[in-house]
């Protein structure tokens, strides 16, 4: 029920220690209307289970897909979703803002 920063980071740590591949997604900038502020995080493991949020549910699916690729490649990515972005409409960022999200793997 509670969604605190330490719970998200704690879960990232726990999953990593269990030998799972883990990625962290962090909102690094927002422009216009966006539901989650800078620093909001989401953690996801290789099985696709996730905790936390980086939007009001609009871009999480796309972020998780990218996160799975980041786990594979081991290289972080900077994602951007906005109304001027075709993909953003596809994933439904309907609030009219722009959000940039840094996705990074948790490494040993």
């Amino acid at each position: 029920m509670q969604e605190r920063q330490e719970d998200i980071l704690g879960l990232a740590h726990k999953w990593h220690n269990e030998g799972k591949q883990v990625a962290l997604a962090t909102v690094v900038s927002t422009w216009g209307s966006s539901p989650r502020s800078c620093g909001s995080q989401l953690v996801v493991h290789e099985g696709g289970e996730f905790f936390g949020s980086v939007s009001g549910g609009c871009v999480e699916t796309a972020v998780i897909t990218e996160a799975l690729e980041v786990m594979q490649s081991g290289t972080p990515r900077l994602l951007e979703f906005s109304v001027s972005n075709e993909m953003a409409w596809d994933v439904g960022l309907a609030c009219g803002g722009t959000v940039r999200i840094y996705v990074e793997p948790v490494t040993a």
Partner: peptide, 26 residues
């Protein structure tokens, strides 16, 4: 993020200490 950094942030929060994670995005 290295697991070691993750541990340091978690530890700092347990001790109620403020920290800033600095990430070079390039």
């Amino acid at each position: 993020m290295r697991a070691e950094l993750l541990e340091k942030i978690i530890h700092a929060r347990k001790q109620a200490r403020a920290v800033v994670m600095i990430s070079h995005l390039d």
